[in-house]
Simulated scan of single mutants.
Amino acid sequence: MSAARLLAAIPVLLALAGCQPAAEAPPRAVRPLLSMVIQPVATAEASFVGVVSPRISVTQAFRVGGTLINRAVGLGDQVRAGAALADLDATTLDLAVETARANLQAAEAQYANAAGAEGRLRALTESDVTTVANLQQAEQQSAAALANVVQARSRLTQATEQRSYASLAAPFDGVVTAVGAEPGAVVAAGQTVLTVARTDSRDVVIDVPESFVHNLAVGTVFRVAPQLSPATVVEGKLREIAPEADPVTRSWRLKIGIDAPPPQFWLGTTATASLAAASADVVIRVPETAIRRVGDASSVWVVDPAANVVNARPVELGAAADGQVEIRSGLAAGERIAVAGVNSLVEGQRVAKAGEPQ
């Protein structure tokens, strides 16, 4: 075939090609899908075992060092506010008080002499018997003597205060929970001698996981019962939440306050603290793998049972624990959602029916 005939045939071939029907886009393949039907679950009561501890516990120590010569109370003794607890050998402190008192008396005598001399010179100056310079010198000596009196009086006050540090008194009504030194021992300033705890208010100290503590606030009411007397149930209010988790156990420490505790709540005994379920009896929980997160927004893929397609549904999340997350709003019982591959699905994508081969 010549070149001229080939060129003449090209338009005909192009026209014939344009008459052929356009090829249809291949249908999107049905996507196998791992899904589940939403089933609400009943909320269970959360219980934790803790220890009954004093809300206020104060260590008692001397502010000066010395030999412990007397300890009036022992472990477990009840004490009243102001009662004597322990005493140091105060011989050295007594001597310091006597020395300071004697120095004060000497300073006062010197000031009396200086003041008398100043008065006599003032009278002589008025009679022109002595010079003004002598009077001014006497005034300076009198002022210096007065300053010595003030200094000596301050030292006596200080020595008396130091003497009072040789005795310990109970700061409030309570019980002795620890003993740190025995009579005859030499103790340093600040060394613990006794520990006194109040008995009118106590705490139940418990450790809880991170997933539990985020739903709590100060003032939350717990039901507390000692394990040795489970029938003795009282209400306690959450008083303190640890600012950070324990670095080893990763648990958070809570202190539940109990005012006017019954006798069964002995210090150091174990107790169970229970948090009743919320007013709603059921909650919806889904696997965390079902949550699709885009920025701050969270959604799940809901399967349309009629068209077998997935649609994104915004949801509000609650607490998460053990691979499950609570859905506060956005889902209803009986709906089917995707629980795997949520980041590879697209809006309106067809999926295999539940139970059909995938």
Rank of each mutant, 00 (worst) to 15 (best):
I291Y: 02
G236A: 07
T289D: 08
F222K: 01
V303A: 04
A242K: 08
V310M: 03
R293Q: 12
D304L: 11
S229D: 13
I241Y: 05
L228I: 10
V300L: 06
V309Q: 07
I258L: 14
E240Y: 13
V248W: 11
D246F: 07
W266E: 12
G257M: 07
D281Y: 12
P226M: 05
V218E: 13
P243L: 05
R293W: 01
T289P: 02
P226L: 03
E244Q: 14
V286D: 01
I256K: 00
V302W: 02
N215Y: 07
K237E: 12
P209W: 06
A306I: 14
V221R: 10
I284A: 01
H214G: 15
W266L: 14
T269A: 13
R250C: 05
L228M: 12
V213G: 05
V302L: 09
P261I: 07
S251M: 13
R293S: 09
R285G: 03
T269N: 10
D296C: 04
D304V: 11
A260Q: 15
I206R: 00
P230A: 09
V218L: 10
V233T: 14
S298N: 08
V233W: 09
G257F: 03
A277D: 12
P243Y: 05
L238E: 02
G295Y: 00
T232P: 05
R223C: 04
A280G: 11
T269V: 14
G257V: 06
P209K: 07
R285H: 10
R223Q: 14
L254P: 00
A290T: 03
S229A: 15
A276E: 15
R223D: 15
I256A: 02
V213R: 05
W252I: 11
L238I: 06
V221N: 09
A312M: 10
P247L: 07
A273S: 05
V310S: 01
A297V: 03
P263A: 11
V204H: 00
E210Q: 14
A273V: 02
V204L: 01
I258H: 05
V309F: 04
G268Y: 10
G257S: 15
P287K: 12
V283Q: 09
W301F: 08
L216R: 08
A245P: 05
S229C: 12
S274A: 15
A225G: 10
N215K: 12
A280D: 15
D296H: 05
W252H: 04
P209D: 13
V303L: 12
R285I: 08
S279Q: 14
A312W: 00
I256V: 13
A225C: 13
V221F: 02
A280L: 14
R292T: 04
P262A: 08
W266Q: 14
D207S: 13
K237N: 15
R285Q: 14
G236P: 01
L267W: 01
A217C: 08
F212C: 03
D246P: 06
I256L: 05
V302C: 04
I241N: 03
N308R: 15
P262I: 10
A280C: 11
P230R: 11
R239T: 06
V294P: 01
